[in-house]
Simulated scan of single mutants.
Amino acid sequence: MIKNKKIVLILIGVLLIAQVGCRANTNKESLEGKDINDSTVEVGAPDKAIIDRSESVSDLVVELFGVDNATCIIFNDIAVVGIKMAYDTELTDAMKETIINLVVENDSMIRQVVITENEKIFEQVENIIGGLMKGKPYDGYVTEINRIIEKIKKDN
């Protein structure tokens, strides 16, 4: 009985120390020059998986010759890819086909890829990814993503 009480007291002590340690860095002075708004938020598993897959697609596409920057958001089985082409290069049909094949080959859950070089849409996709990374729920972006997909399909 006494042994059990000692174990419980030790556990409570460890938990209190851990709790105090976790709270110690919440004031601005202890962040030592770090941007307070630059903190990370834990993202739920399904949203994290979407972010990871989207970033993987972006990383693949930006490695292509002639692509300066790429962003992506995945919605169900559709990848929305925003592209910024390098100076003096164009997003040709051949380049679009290369991007589509690359994305579909590297993510077996993607069935359709929509591509745009519209700067406004590129920024919208970037903002969605940024919001998800800050912990905002994916469900809050569904309508916006659907609008983006429809706009890209209409423009192509």
Score class of each variant (00 low, 15 high):
I2C: 06
I2G: 09
N4D: 12
K5R: 15
K6D: 10
I7A: 11
I7E: 11
I7K: 15
V8W: 14
V8D: 06
L11A: 14
L11E: 11
I12L: 14
G13F: 05
V14N: 08
L15G: 00
L15C: 07
L15V: 08
L16A: 10
I17A: 13
A18M: 14
Q19P: 09
Q19N: 15
Q19L: 15
V20H: 09
G21A: 15
C22K: 13
A24R: 09
T26L: 13
N27R: 09
N27A: 09
N27V: 10
K28F: 04
E32Q: 11
E32W: 12
E32N: 14
G33R: 02
G33T: 06
D35A: 13
I36L: 02
I36Y: 05
D38P: 03
D38F: 10
D38Y: 03
S39H: 11
T40A: 11
V43P: 01
G44Y: 09
G44R: 05
G44H: 04
P46K: 11
K48V: 04
A49S: 12
A49T: 08
R53W: 00
S54L: 12
S54V: 05
E55Y: 12
E55W: 04
V57C: 08
D59T: 11
D59S: 12
L60I: 00
L60F: 05
V61E: 02
V61D: 04
V61Q: 00
V61N: 02
V61G: 01
L64N: 02
L64C: 01
L64R: 01
V67D: 03
D68W: 04
D68H: 09
A70G: 00
I73K: 03
I74D: 00
F75V: 08
D77M: 02
V81F: 01
K84D: 13
Y87Q: 03
E90N: 13
T92I: 04
T92W: 04
M95A: 06
E97V: 07
I99E: 05
I99W: 09
I100L: 05
I100Q: 02
I100A: 02
V104R: 04
V104Q: 07
E105S: 08
E105A: 08
N106R: 06
N106I: 06
N106P: 13
D107L: 04
S108K: 11
M109T: 15
M109D: 13
R111D: 13
R111N: 15
Q112C: 03
V113P: 03
V113N: 04
T116C: 06
E117L: 07
N118V: 09
E119M: 10
K120D: 10
K120M: 13
I121K: 03
F122V: 07
E123G: 06
E123C: 01
E123V: 15
V125N: 01
V125C: 03
N127E: 05
G131L: 01
G131P: 06
L132M: 10
K136W: 00
K136D: 07
K136C: 02
Y138R: 12
G140A: 01
Y141T: 08
Y141P: 03
V142Q: 05
V142A: 11
T143Y: 11
T143S: 07
E144G: 02
I145P: 07
I145N: 01
I145H: 04
R147F: 15
I148Y: 02
I149P: 00
I149H: 00
I149C: 07
I152N: 06
I152S: 02
I152G: 05
K154N: 14
K154W: 13
D155A: 11
D155R: 07
N156K: 14
